[in-house]
Design a protein around this nucleic acid. Structure first.
Length: 104
DNA sequence: CGAGTGACCGCAA
DNA sequence: ATTGCGGCCACTC
């Protein structure tokens, strides 16, 4: 089961794909889970050039604010999160409710 | 193969 | 509290 590819980006795919509905995660958190806590930018780069079918909308910045490169802008991104069941206030996600920790 | 760059993060003024 | 700057790592051209 650990025979996944060595590529950092493929690990990001696994993590993002495992984020359940109604939960959000930060780029830095995902990067840390992938083995590089300082590669948060890479997660964003992978998000842009990676698999468009993955729920990148559940991935937010550490300030729980939304990314700017998302198609449609913050507005489109925010609307997608609400469609997932994530309540937002002033463009911010309630981490106390939606903060998710990956399963071991 | 080399260089540039980014859907970021952390700190300093 | 806000604003600006650098650094970092992996991906794309």
């Amino acid at each position: 089961m650990e025979e996944i590819a060595d590529q950092f980006r493929l690990r990001v795919y696994e993590v993002v794909a495992q984020i359940p509905r109604g939960r959000v995660m930060t780029y830095g958190q995902i990067a840390a889970l992938c083995g590089s806590p300082r590669a948060a930018r890479i997660v964003g780069g992978v998000a842009h050039f990676g698999d468009p079918d993955l729920p990148w909308q559940r991935v937010v910045k550490k300030d729980v604010s939304l990314a700017e490169g998302y198609p449609g802008g913050i507005t489109g991104h925010q609307r997608q999160l609400e469609a997932e069941g994530v309540a937002m206030v002033q463009g911010k996600v309630n981490m106390a409710v939606h903060a998710w920790k990956p399963s071991p």
